[in-house]
Computed example of a mutant assay.
Amino acid sequence: MTATTLDLIDRKIVSALMQDATQPIGRIADQVGLSQTPCWKRIQKLEAAGVLTGRVAIADPAKLGLGLTVFAGVEAPDHSPEWRAGFERALAAMPEVREVYRMAGIYDYLLQIIARDVGAFDEFYKRLTTVVKVKSCSSLFVLERLKATPGYPVDTTTR
């Protein structure tokens, strides 16, 4: 199942679940014009196909004592599969790392890191650079989050 094979009803179901995954199947079914059983079967197919990858609660990091968000640009010392595998293993073991992107441009990787404060980020940085060699790491500290949208824009208007 790919974006081109999702029909309008599938896209409406995905959009509804991204807005609120806790809503009852009956409400989603009403929104998309199905009865509950066919709607549930479509959700199961979307999960089996990997379109829906999980259902989570979204928390406010500041209210969890995680007041600092940092974006770190990392330059790799080399581009060998061995280095990349070690880097990926190191990041997988660090819960502060929320997202990782392999990039084209100035940085090889862009990391989103969440931490309690600057001191906690510094501890993370020391741990990262002890576990894996990096050519450089440049950090950008977030002053204010203006927008954070957990879902994605899904076309729910055209066939």
Rank of each mutant, 00 (worst) to 15 (best):
E99D: 11
T4N: 11
A120Y: 08
F121I: 05
D10N: 09
E144Q: 14
C137P: 00
Y125V: 01
K45F: 04
L34F: 05
F71S: 07
G50Q: 06
Q44L: 11
V134C: 13
G33M: 09
R159S: 14
Q31K: 04
I13G: 05
S80C: 01
L66D: 04
A57N: 09
T129R: 14
R11H: 00
D155C: 04
L128N: 03
A115G: 08
G54R: 12
C137R: 12
L111N: 07
A16G: 01
P24Y: 07
G86T: 03
A21E: 08
V74L: 14
F124V: 03
T157L: 12
V131P: 02
Y109G: 02
F71K: 01
L111D: 06
L128A: 11
P38D: 08
D60S: 13
K41Q: 15
L140P: 00
D60K: 12
K12E: 03
E88R: 13
A62H: 13
E99M: 10
L91I: 08
V118Q: 11
I9Q: 13
E47C: 08
Y109S: 05
F124W: 13
V70R: 11
M1E: 06
G151L: 03
V56I: 15
M1C: 07
E47D: 10
L34H: 08
Q23H: 02
G50S: 06
Q36M: 06
E96Q: 15
W83Y: 09
G50W: 07
L146W: 09
L128V: 04
R11G: 01
E75D: 15
K126L: 14
A48S: 14
F71H: 13
Q36A: 11
V131W: 03
A16S: 15
E144L: 08
V70T: 10
R42W: 05
R55I: 00
K63I: 01
D30S: 14
A29H: 07
A72R: 08
